[in-house]
Each structure stands twice: as structure tokens, then as C-alpha cells.
Write a protein that binds this DNA or RNA. Sequence first.
DNA 1: TATGTAAGTAAGTATTTGCTTACAAAAGTA
DNA 2: TACTTTTGTAAGCAAATACTTACTTACATA
Lengths: 196, 196
Amino acid sequence: MKKQSTEIRQEQIKQAVLDIIYKDGLKNLSTRNLSKQIGMSEGAIFRHFTSKQDIILSIIKDVRQDFIGPLEIIANSDEMPEARLKSLLCFTIQYLMENKGITMLMFSEASHNNDADLKQTLLQIFNSQKSLVSKIIQDGITQGIWNNNISVENIAMLYMGIPVSLNIELILNGGNLQAENFCQNMLQLLLKILEK
Amino acid sequence: MKKQSTEIRQEQIKQAVLDIIYKDGLKNLSTRNLSKQIGMSEGAIFRHFTSKQDIILSIIKDVRQDFIGPLEIIANSDEMPEARLKSLLCFTIQYLMENKGITMLMFSEASHNNDADLKQTLLQIFNSQKSLVSKIIQDGITQGIWNNNISVENIAMLYMGIPVSLNIELILNGGNLQAENFCQNMLQLLLKILEK
DNA sequence: TATGTAAGTAAGTATTTGCTTACAAAAGTA
DNA sequence: TACTTTTGTAAGCAAATACTTACTTACATA
């Protein structure tokens, strides 16, 4: 196999991990299977990551950077709450559609890991999402746009189920889902809850 | 160890499976680990089930009987749509709280299984839930109680995320969650969407 | 062109996996 | 009581697992 830099290989390996999880499930995520998917020897994987655990940790850290990072920018922008909520939701759905294995990875593998570092990062990812949604909703209420009689906490919780709804549909109906439509549809429902 | 009938042992084994999944995650669900949890030898497990797969299949069939069964009765009762929706949601949450490993099992293990029988049962469980919620909502619309401008399909999709939201909270925040409150809270939000 | 290093491989390692075997003992039944 | 069946065990099986080793090869740079 042609030689490549560690940076390139690391990206390939992480992508392959997510692909395997989405297509074949977590139980088929073995280093042997992984090497087959990439077309490189098993030993080579361990040139670029110290352990299988290390690959997963790296993926979760990517999530914080490539997913939570942009979400923070969206939530803290000076746009109207409704526009921010839409951006937040649509970006989330887009990200999860492009990284289809991530939802499963975070729930199943990562959440029951005894690696404290990994667990901490994971908790941070969930809590960040929740608090960013909460912030936008709170802004809308404060600005008098939305109903002040609803519990921000409860909507945030309902919101957190949306990405997983998406995942259920993807797995069971085989991935043919219009991300743009899905985002708009869910947004409509949320706005109905928020309206005065 | 004292002898017990296969029926009793099967229940114990299935319960232990769900406990392990909830506490330690799917990757720790080995037959060795399972035998340790029950306090019986590994060989004894295979007296009562033909394979590990067989245990999982049996659990999923329980879900259809003990969970989907009652849901059908609730959805088809002659109560008002709002009362039925509440019962449906609260029963779902109660069931998942009492069988905390099931959500994870259905998503991760079962959805990527190559056993056709299992996959079929699983698909049935998801689609049943969705169609029962849809039925209740449709009834409410037909009776002129709820808004006829909303998409039944979309609300059903949003609904399906609620049980998993619950699971996230349970795993990450350590299980201290008031089921009764959670049910009422989510119901409030759904009713807000449905109202005219 | 020579050389050091980073990136590749095949073939191991020890451990864990799901499951089987050969046998023991408890419990129902005659 | 005698005998059959059912439920239990300890020890071991082949295959799969994550990871290592000893060695090779491509490539940037002196």
C-alpha cells in the first residue's frame, strides 16, 4: 500500500470506524474488520493510534470541535431566536447525516467506557447541546417573542430526542431521508410549542 | 446452586442481560459475565437457552408481548384521545424505566443483527409504536379536538425520540429521574403542538 | 546518491469469546 | 426405594479479539 502521512491515515481510520458502526453495528467494529475496510494491515492501524480506545477518544474530541464549536457560534450570534434555533437544528441534522455512526458510538460504546477522560468529554457534548438550545429559547422568551409559560428545560429535553429520532429512521428505513425537510418539519413543531 | 425450573431461570437470565447492558454497556455482555452476575455456571445458561442470540431474541419477543400488547389496548380503547395519549406515553416511560437496558439493546445489538426473525420483530416493534401514536392523533383530529393543520407523521417521529431522551438522561445523570413528572412534562409539550 | 526515518507488512502473542463435553446431583415419579 | 429426567458443574474447545514483534520498503533530505 502507498505510504501516507499519519494525519491522513488518522482521518481515514476514524471515517472507517464511523462507516462500520453505521453499516454493520458496533459489534463488528474490530481492528481486523477495520483494517479490511481501509485496505491496510492491522499493524499499520497501531502506527497511527496507540489503541482502539484511542481512535474512539479522538472521534469524540472531533465531535466537540467540529460539532459543538459551530453550535456555540450559532447560539451566541446576534440573529433572531427563531433563526438561531433553525440554524442550530439544521446544522445538527446535517452533521449527524454526514457522520452517521456517531450517535450510536456516543450512546453505546462511549457512555459505558471506564475511561474518565472520554466520559467527561461525552457529558460535555450532551450538556453543551442542551444548554445552547436552552439559551436560545430563553432569549426568545426574554425578548417577548415566545410563550413564557413553558419550561425551557422540558423543551430542551424534547429537542435532544430529535437527533435520535433521525437515527431510528435512518437505520430502519435505510437512509433515504431528506435532511432539509426533516429539519424544517421538526422546527415547525418546536415553534408551535414556543408560540404564545 | 439450588435447582430451579427452566421458566424461572430464563426470566433471571433475561433480567441479568438487561441489567448488564444498562450498567456496563453492551460490550460487557459476555456469557461469562452473565454467569457471574447470576451466580451460576456458564454451562447452565446454555441449558436454558440454545445460544446467546436466543436470549436476545426472547427478550425482544417479550417486548412485543409485554410492551406493544398493552399499547395496542390503550390506543384502541374508547377513551378520549388526550387520555389515550397520556396513558400511552406514561406506560411507555414506565416500561422503559423498569427495563432500562432495552432501549440500548434494540438500537445497537438488534438493529444490526443478521438474524432475519429478530430484525423482523424489531421493525414491527418500532412501526407499531409509531402507528399507534399516529392513530390516536388522527382520532383527535377527526373528532375536531386537535389542529388538522399538523402532520401526524411528524409528531409521531418527534414522539419516538422521547423514550431515548429519557435513556440519555438516565445513563448520563445516573438514573435519578421522576418518571411521573417526565411523562406529564412531555405530554404538555405534545398537547401544545396538537391544540388548535 | 546515500542514509535515517516514518509507514508499511506477516505472523505472531495472550486473553476473551460463545459454546460443548463428561460427569454429578437434585428432584420428580413408579 | 429404584429409576429417569432435569438441572447443575468444571474443564476445555476453536475462533476472534486487541495488540506486538521483527522485519521491509518508500520517501524526504543531506
